[in-house]
């Protein structure tokens, strides 16, 4: 495994120069679709989740947001919106497609239930092929969504599903917590002012697990994440299964102050310095097991203090 990839954006800076600074100026394309509810309660729930997500992302900078609900969430409209991203997005841009609603699996094909003809996972995958952005996330929060992993997975795409298989057919709660990750600051667990696809997934997964445990109900959904383009998805992405590396680097939501700093020439130097220290910290953490505890603590303390001082300068 590539060590740089293992350690994410921070260490990549050390090796790849100003990659992250460029990324900070990229645009994020959000396509959110609330499908058919089937009954009023679900209809309302799906629409309100989609609108909640819409509201959360619109308040962040450099975004293009399209949210389709109710009768407008047709296959033709979804394809048209993707076409806009095909025309307008760049390779460094991030594309986030979120499906909220019910899904079905007939043993062969997964379909997202929408007004008019349903949208199959294969059809969605086919359309997304043409989007220039090579940093894509598909979040499928529907029932039976586990069956969409195989058609959707690519080595440049993170696929998140609410269920582990097409056979998990009950309505899900995962979507509710996934949307919550967009507005709960605690989802940003590394406090880098952005919520990555991995952070959002971990947040929603833990909340979903806690929901079933607290309710003392048998879990009817088991979320998965796939970002290698060749796996079946895993519940707990990490170094042991090789999943989660891409998802960690894909920001779903950025809070803004770093973008502003990146635009200021005088702060560019400090940002680069900051990124350098972050890289050293990541490297040290990577070597933690092989470093004597006292030495690790001492070096980590020194680097963290250094980083805090640089950040203080950036914030001035």
């Amino acid at each position: 495994m590539d060590a740089a990839a293992e350690m994410g954006c921070g260490l990549r800076i050390v090796l790849l120069g100003s990659f992250c600074a460029t990324v900070l100026q990229a645009t994020t394309w959000y396509i959110t679709v609330a499908g058919l509810g089937g009954e009023p309660e679900y209809e309302t729930r799906f629409t309100s989740l989609a609108m909640e997500l819409d509201k959360a992302v619109r308040s962040t900078p450099d975004v293009k947001v399209t949210t389709l609900t109710g009768s407008s969430a047709t296959k033709a409209r979804i394809e048209a919106v993707i076409d806009e991203a095909v025309k307008g997005s760049k390779a460094d841009d991030v594309l986030v497609v979120t499906l909220i609603g019910h899904g079905t699996f007939d043993g062969t094909n997964y379909k997202f239930n929408i007004p008019g003809p349903d949208l199959s996972a294969a059809e969605l995958a086919g359309k997304l092929e043409f989007v220039p952005s090579r940093r894509q996330v598909v979040i499928n929060t529907t029932s039976a969504s586990g069956a969409s992993i195989e058609p959707l997975r690519r080595d440049y795409r993170t696929v998140i599903t609410a269920t582990r298989a097409g056979t998990e057919k009950n309505a899900t709660v995962f979507g509710r917590f996934l949307v919550e990750a967009f507005r709960d600051p605690s989802a940003d667990s590394d406090k880098n002012e952005s919520v990555s696809a991995l952070e959002a997934y971990v947040y929603a997964d833990q909340k979903t697990t806690a929901f079933y445990e607290t309710q003392k109900r048998l879990a009817t959904e088991h979320p998965l994440l796939e970002d290698t383009g060749k796996g079946g998805g895993v519940r707990a992405p990490g170094p042991d299964n090789g999943q989660g590396l891409l998802a960690r680097q894909l920001p779903l939501l950025r809070f803004g102050s770093l973008q502003q700093a990146a635009r200021s020439p005088e702060k560019q130097k400090l940002l680069a310095q900051r990124e350098g220290i972050e890289g050293q910290i990541d490297k040290l953490k990577y070597e933690k097991a092989a470093t004597p505890a006292d030495e690790y603590r001492k070096r980590l303390g020194a680097l963290l203090l250094q980083l805090a001082r640089v950040q203080e300068e950036i914030d001035k």
């Binding site: 406090k191 972050e278 953490k285 980590l300 963290l304 980083l307 203080e312 914030d315």
Partner: peptide, 25 residues
């Protein structure tokens, strides 16, 4: 300090923790 270190080990860029670290240092 020990707990600040744990906090910043998990999130090196965590601003409030950084500020407290600077204060304690």
């Amino acid at each position: 300090r020990e707990n600040l270190l744990f906090a910043l080990e998990a999130a090196p860029s965590f601003r409030p923790a950084q500020k407290l670290l600077l204060e304690l240092s």
